[in-house]
């Protein structure tokens, strides 16, 4: 079964009398374990598409199926449940909760999923170890570099063993070395866990990591191998 199936998804934003077609009849399928880059210039609809896939927003038309389930029919609580159990997020800004330590940030979605304490402790340390930050577990975000914060975010996204991880411009605020390291980690974890990764970018060095590249322009998919 495909991890994601998008059918005729349309999203239009209205600002006053002006209408902007952020997504225009998009069709896309992403298989399990894929490592896919959504590529396109600013305003091409990459972020909006990730938001639709991530159940953060609803399309005006069309359907989004995750593991065969039509998520456009779900209410806000059901979408929150789905995000909690099946979708991981990595944002452009290092979206950690500033008052929690690295350990607690990774632990948070596991807590929301009701994982037992001992299992949770093992899982958090396993993930922090996987991103090379086990020794920084009890540091707060303001005590970590940008690259380290993004690696914590990657660990957090993978905590509940999701079907897919969505990353919106994950390296945009990182220098080349840290950006490269973050992408290597994502690529390795994709291979080790079989979790599908979909990331938006317009950086050619980051696009090079993808096994599949989907090109977007003006809210449409112009190339999808």
């Amino acid at each position: 079964m495909d991890a994601i199936q998008i059918n005729q998804v349309t999203k239009t934003y209205r600002v006053g009398a002006t209408q902007t077609h952020a997504l225009d009849h998009i069709n896309l399928t992403i298989g399990e374990g894929e490592f896919t880059a959504l590529v396109g210039p600013s305003g091409s609809g990459k972020t909006t598409l990730l938001q639709m896939i991530g159940c953060l927003d609803k399309p005006d038309q069309g359907t989004v199926l995750i593991k065969g389930q039509d998520v456009t029919r779900l209410n806000s609580n059901q979408r929150a449940d789905l995000r909690r159990s099946s979708i991981g997020f990595v944002f452009q800004f290092f979206a950690l909760v500033p008052v929690l330590t690295a350990y607690e940030n990774v632990e948070l979605p596991l807590l929301l999923n009701g994982m037992k304490t001992s299992e949770r402790r093992t899982r958090v340390m396993e993930l922090l170890d996987a991103v090379g930050l086990a020794d920084r577990a009890h540091h707060r975000p303001d005590q970590l570099s940008g690259g380290q914060q993004q690696r914590v975010a990657i660990a957090r996204a993978l905590g509940p063993r999701p079907v897919l991880v969505l990353a919106d411009e994950p390296t945009a605020n990182l220098d080349t070395a840290n950006g490269h390291q973050a992408m290597e980690i994502m690529q390795r974890l994709n291979q080790e866990t079989g979790t599908a990764f979909v990331y938006a970018t317009h950086d050619p060095r980051v696009i090079a990591f993808a096994r599949r590249v989907v090109k977007m322009e003006d809210g449409k998919i112009i190339d999808s191998p």
Binding site: L56, R83, R84, F91, F93, L96
Partner: peptide
């Protein structure tokens, strides 16, 4: 507000 958005994205519900 953005942090609330992150918590929502992680699956935290309105009641939380």
């Amino acid at each position: 507000i953005r942090e609330m958005g992150i918590l929502s994205a992680l699956g935290m519900k309105g009641r939380h």
